[in-house]
Design a protein around this nucleic acid. Structure first.
Length: 434
RNA sequence: GUGGCCUUAGCUCAAUCGGCAGAGCACUGGAUUGUGGCUCCAGAGGUUACGGGUUCGACCCCCGUAGGCCACCCCA
């Protein structure tokens, strides 16, 4: 066992995994660029109060998963690692007066989030999210834009079987009366409600709706549904969101039990699910509208909506579905490897490779002290297209350029080497459509 | 935070009833002096996760710890 290892719930993304992540990030960047979302980077830690106030004191995220950091004892519990990106972005919105920018403000960020809970496959203490937020627009069109963007991301990433689950959880006007009805409903059946759920009833009754406990599932089948209790404004908003999604043919499933884990959501709530996969980490992403959050964090009231998509889970599902590129652990195939007949002459190889690199070629010197055959063997195994062989011809100002794919070889003047190779590499790339 | 299963070489896994820790892949080197991915040979790689206990003797049985996984809780 090594002396040190990655902390519990964290992991190293080795080159093959990291390359897959970079691929997902590139897709996300391309999409957000074209949808008009601008990048923003906020700190990975904030004052703990930003999360406690924004996310809600009685949520699991704050109560048991907040990753607190205390660099000095007299600052204990002052700061916490971000468990999600929205609160920090809203804090930045308030701090920098983004309500004076042209509205809406479309923002996106990608980075690690932190939650101190018990790890499992697809659930980590440090995990990556692709996050998109639109602030300053109350209308249903932006809700649909966001939901469609996330849906398109999964399609572009190649994830099969992603379902959009959709619900509205009302707002300050209609949720209180619904909650009262819901609590009454459960109280009438208090004898049947399991102990842990009963404790929740007082603190956060909405959360009982998405319990997986079989007895709760049975009870919930008859529970009042929030969509039947929406005020006129919320009902109209929800209908309009659906109409927008229908118009662009984004399929979705209405889920009356979908309530989301964070307090700041209002009206539109949605999640992206892969129900086909084994195991429990089926939620690949989720989000919703948070019209009260800006005010909660000290700003002038402004509406917002956004989502966070878990890149770790996307990568996991892609692998399970056999869609992951088989990026091996080795280095990417170089255009050119520089080898030499003299096993000891690493300087000549280094000099030539450096010159080729300066000319923009993906060139690598063989760094070992092995004989020529071994050097060529390694070059071929690494997938290099060309080998530059340094030998006796060097005295006359020439080297051998060997085409490792074709098995052909010719003498090239050192002075022409970079130009010749550049041309050959370019034509090969066009020829194979790479 | 609750309950359960698991942990042997870098990776995937063997090791009879408690009796000498192994294989494949990968890695490194070699196969009569300057030419290939195949083949052949060899090498290196282990405190059997860690700590204790039982035993003449522990990879194997018992206890604890750590980590992973599964189901909850909840979520990405």
């Amino acid at each position: 066992m090594p002396t040190f290892r990655a902390p519990r719930g964290t992991r190293d993304l080795l080159p093959a995994d990291a390359a897959r992540f970079q691929g997902l990030i590139a897709i996300a960047r391309d999409l957000t660029d074209r949808y008009g979302y601008r990048p923003i980077e906020t700190p990975v830690f904030e004052q703990a109060a930003v999360f406690e106030r924004g996310i809600g004191e009685v949520t699991d995220v704050v109560e048991k998963e907040l990753f607190r950091i205390a660099p000095r004892t007299d600052e204990a519990e002052a700061w916490a690692l971000r468990p999600e990106p929205t609160a920090g972005i809203v804090r930045a919105w308030v701090q920098h007066g983004m309500q004076t920018w042209p509205q809406p403000v479309r923002l996106t960020t990608i980075g690690p989030m932190f939650r101190y809970d018990r790890p499992q496959a697809g659930r980590y203490r440090q995990f990556w999210q692709f996050d998109v937020e639109a602030l300053g627009d109350p209308g249903p069109a932006i809700d649909a834009e966001i939901i469609e963007l996330g849906h398109r991301f999964y399609g572009r990433a190649g994830v099969a079987g992603v379902e959009v689950h959709l619900n509205s959880i009302g707002d300050a006007a209609c949720r209180p009366s619904y909650l009262a009805a819901l609590v009454d409903f459960y109280r009438e059946r208090a004898g049947a409600v399991p102990g842990p759920a009963r404790a929740r009833l007082e603190r956060n009754p909405l959360r009982l709706l998405d319990s997986k406990d079989p007895t709760m599932v049975a009870i919930n089948a008859g529970a009042p549904r929030i969509v039947d209790h929406l005020c006129a404004a919320c009902a109209a908003h929800f209908a309009a969101v659906r109409a927008h999604l229908d118009a662009v043919h984004v399929p979705y499933r209405l889920e009356p039990g979908l309530v989301r884990g964070l307090d700041y959501y209002s009206r539109t709530a949605f999640e992206y699910y892969v129900t086909a996969r084994e195991g429990q980490q089926q939620a690949l992403g989720g989000g919703g509208r948070y019209d009260g959050l800006v005010e909660l964090l000290g700003g002038r009231p402004a509406p917002g909506i956004g989502f966070g998509l878990g890149l770790d889970r996307v990568a996991l599902v892609l692998e399970e579905q056999g869609m992951a590129d088989d990026a091996g652990p080795g280095v990417p195939a170089p255009d050119v490897v520089v080898v030499s007949a003299d096993p000891a002459d690493t300087i000549a190889r280094f000099v030539v490779a450096t010159r080729l690199r300066g000319a923009g070629l993906a060139a690598q010197p063989d760094l070992g002290q092995r004989k020529l055959g071994r050097q060529l063997e390694a070059a071929a195994r690494d997938g290099a297209h060309f080998a530059v062989i340094l030998g006796d011809e060097l005295a006359g100002g020439h080297v051998q350029v060997r085409d490792l794919k074709a098995g052909s070889q010719r003498l090239v003047a050192v002075d022409d080497l970079a130009r010749e190779l550049g041309r050959a590499v370019a034509s090969h790339r066009h020829g194979t459509g790479e």
